[in-house]
Computed example of a mutant assay.
Amino acid sequence: MPRQLTSQQVWQAIEKELFAVVGMVTAGHEARTVGILYAVGDHKLYFITDRDTWKVRHIAANPHVSVTIPIAKRVPIMPWMKIPQATITFQGTARICGAGEAMPDLLKKLLGPMADDSALIAGSCLVEIVPTGEFVTYGVGVRLIEMRDPNKARGRAPVA
Rank of each mutant, 00 (worst) to 15 (best):
W11Y: 12
G23Y: 05
G92C: 07
L110W: 02
V140Y: 00
K55F: 08
H43N: 12
V10K: 05
H43G: 04
M147I: 00
T49N: 03
M1F: 09
E101K: 15
R148H: 08
F135C: 05
L5R: 09
S7F: 07
A160V: 10
P84K: 12
L45R: 01
V40N: 04
A61G: 10
Q8W: 09
E134P: 02
M1P: 09
I59M: 09
A31L: 12
Y138S: 11
T89I: 07
A31W: 04
G112C: 11
E15C: 12
M114K: 11
D105M: 09
N151K: 15
I48H: 02
P70N: 13
I36G: 00
N151C: 08
T137L: 04
Y46T: 05
Y46V: 01
L126A: 02
L110N: 00
S118G: 02
H58R: 06
S7K: 06
V40L: 01
T49M: 01
P63Q: 14
G155F: 03
G112I: 05
E146M: 00
Q12G: 11
I14S: 00
E128G: 05
I48M: 10
A94G: 09
R154D: 08
L120R: 12
D116W: 04
F47I: 03
R148M: 14
L144T: 05
T6E: 10
V65N: 05
Q9V: 06
G141V: 00
L5F: 10
N62F: 13
E30F: 14
Q8M: 09
D50V: 00
M147C: 06
M24L: 15
R148G: 14
V25D: 00
H29G: 10
S118T: 13
W11N: 08
A27S: 15
V25L: 10
I121W: 01
R57W: 08
Y38A: 01
M147Y: 04
A157H: 06
A119K: 11
L110R: 02
P113N: 07
R143L: 00
A115W: 00
H29I: 03
V159Q: 05
K108S: 06
M78I: 06
R148C: 14
I14A: 04
R57H: 13
Y46G: 00
R95F: 04
P131H: 06
C97W: 10
D42S: 10
I121P: 00
E15Q: 15
G112K: 08
R51K: 14
Q12N: 14
S7D: 13
V56G: 06
A61E: 14
P79I: 12
R51I: 12
R74N: 15
G139H: 00
A20P: 03
I59Y: 04
W54C: 11
M24D: 03
A102G: 01
D50I: 00
A94C: 09
L126T: 03
A39Y: 03
S118V: 09
G155Q: 05
D105Y: 14
I145W: 03
T132A: 08
H64M: 13
R3W: 10
I88G: 02
R156Y: 09
E15T: 11
